[in-house]
Write a protein that binds this DNA or RNA. Structure first.
Length: 470
RNA sequence: GGCCUGAUGGCGGAGUGGUGACGCACCGGACUGCAAAUCCGUGAACCCGGGUUCGAUUCCCGGUCAGGCCUCCA
């Protein structure tokens, strides 16, 4: 079964065929680094990380080139820097580090490249130059604007005819625009703002051109997959597409597959900074294992809206507890035997990244593995192999099971718990149930649950305790 | 106003023209000193109205509700 991906341009699932199977290219719009990103911002990070992992599996690890950009030129960055009285790099470095740290905590592999707008300035200026050169753009009053009238396919990606957009326009049209839909490629900087030289005067690039230039520089046009949030379809991706096609008429196309993830909602509404209903991933990660958050983010199909609730996290955590329980019981099993991951295990993911179905598959494999371990069946090894392989494509279940259950405890606490568990074990052997129950109550007070088994007792922390020492 | 999504059991969430995934929770049983974990089992859904069909939750039309984009936005 071939990989099928839903392409926003085609408005349908299409069989995926890279231009060159030895060099598969993917670009995903990354953050503007002026603040901590909220959990909704990380949905595409996790979703496209799964796609990245899947592509690496299908085409080989070295064959996939994944670029995720960083916008580090922006009004909000300037405002923040001015507010703190520091250079913009102090702001962008700080929040980029936080962003990358959070992404790693959510189990996302680093992209192949993470280009920054400030480091792509030559390519940006060069690209604008070519667009002016071939009459796709025009200069006016220190600005350079893209001439939408000169690009017949403008609006094709988002399905918006030009005149409709004008009718619905809610913004005042700048006087120097030839057409209301024309958008900025280059604009003058305000006093005190970072500035770069260009043939059209000192200034800075518009948002859309940054991505196009980074794609051209890092991946080359056209790319196989362009991803991002559904809200970026218009205007950002529409504009990128227009620039990209007009810059390279020889390609005739910019990206062969457009993928867009649905929103993460707080209640009925989208989570967004402007609505003020955000939960920062950075804060959430203080309270929950990144893997539980990742699991919750993948619990819905990526194109569906996802409601973010406390309960969703609890359910994710419980699911992982169960799966790590199985893996803990199977810890002595050497995975292997069946060779490559069975094709059928991958099928849900091959069908437009159906992560909920893949998670159901994992659960089935886990149940079978558990039974095989219990019976001492030879099937345990291949089952574990398949389970771990599928889990690795999803980027989950890679931790040591004991670490998962006990990871929230520091060494001192662990020793204390181990001593209590051992004492309780002795009491149980002596059939001193009163003492055993008393010790269990003591453990419960520490938020620890003991599980008696044939090979002795094991324990786990029920949840990460607040105020935990690092 | 224009364009576009979605509506599934207590909750989350796949999928399908005909025998009701999967998870979490709940209930009964087994196991256990008691629990936990595990196993076995029960119950429970497809927004409304039309249409197509032998048969629709699944296709078509209309409606209702919710959400998104058209402004920075994952």
């Amino acid at each position: 079964m071939p990989l099928k991906l839903y392409d926003t341009m085609a408005r349908a699932k299409r069989d995926f065929a890279p231009k060159d199977p030895r060099r598969v290219t993917m670009y995903v719009c990354g953050p503007t680094v002026y603040n901590y990103s909220h959990i909704g911002n990380f949905r595409p990070v996790v979703v496209f990380d799964v796609l990245f992992r899947l592509l690496r599996r299908l085409y080989g690890e070295d064959a996939v080139r994944y670029a995720a950009n960083v916008t580090d030129v922006d009004d909000k960055i300037n405002a923040k820097a001015a507010e703190e009285g520091v250079p913009i790099t102090a702001i962008t470095d700080r929040y980029l580090a936080a962003y990358n740290g959070d992404a790693a905590a959510l189990g996302a592999l680093p992209p192949t490249v993470q280009p920054r707008a400030t480091e792509t300035m030559d390519a940006i200026v060069a690209m604008i130059g070519r667009l002016v050169e071939n009459s796709s753009a025009y200069a006016a009053e220190g600005h350079v604007l893209f001439d939408t009238q000169n690009f017949a396919d403008y609006g094709k990606l988002s399905g918006r005819p030009l005149d409709e957009m004008i009718a619905g326009a809610r913004v005042e049209v700048a006087p120097y625009k030839r057409h209301p839909a024309d958008f900025v490629l280059w604009k003058p900087s305000k006093p005190g703002e970072p500035v770069w030289e260009s043939p059209w005067g000192p200034g800075r690039p518009g948002w859309h051109i940054e991505c196009s230039a980074m794609i051209e520089q890092e991946l080359g046009l056209p790319i196989d997959i362009h991803g991002g949030g559904i809200d970026l379809v218009f205007p950002h991706h529409e504009n990128e597409l227009a620039q990209g096609v007009c810059d390279g008429h020889q390609h005739g196309t910019y990206a062969n597959y457009w993928l867009h993830n649905g929103f993460l909602n707080m209640g009925e509404e989208k989570m967004s900074k402007s609505l003020g209903n955000v939960t920062l991933a950075h804060d959430l990660l203080q309270q929950q294992p990144g893997e539980a958050i990742r699991w919750a983010l993948l619990a819905a199909h990526y194109r569906q809206p996802l409601s973010w609730t406390e309960d969703a996290l609890v359910q994710a955590r419980n699911s992982l507890d169960h799966l790590y329980g199985v893996l803990g019981r199977a810890r002595h099993i050497e995975a292997g035997g069946s060779g490559a991951l069975a094709e059928e295990q991958l099928e849900p993911l091959l069908d437009d990244l159906n992560t909920p179905a893949a998670m159901a598959q994992i659960k089935k494999l886990a149940t079978d593995l558990d039974a095989a371990v219990r019976k001492g069946s030879g099937q345990a090894a291949p089952l574990k192999q398949d389970l771990m392989a599928l889990a690795s494509v999803l980027g989950v279940l890679q931790a040591d099971p004991q670490g998962w259950f006990q990871g929230g405890a520091d060494e001192g606490l662990k020793d204390r718990i181990d001593a209590l568990v051992a004492a309780r074990d002795a009491a149980r052997r002596a059939k001193d149930w009163g003492e055993a129950d008393r010790l269990r109550a003591e453990l419960t007070a520490l938020n620890v649950e003991v599980m008696d088994g044939p090979a002795g007792a094991t324990w786990r922390l029920l949840s990460v305790k607040e105020g935990e020492q690092a």
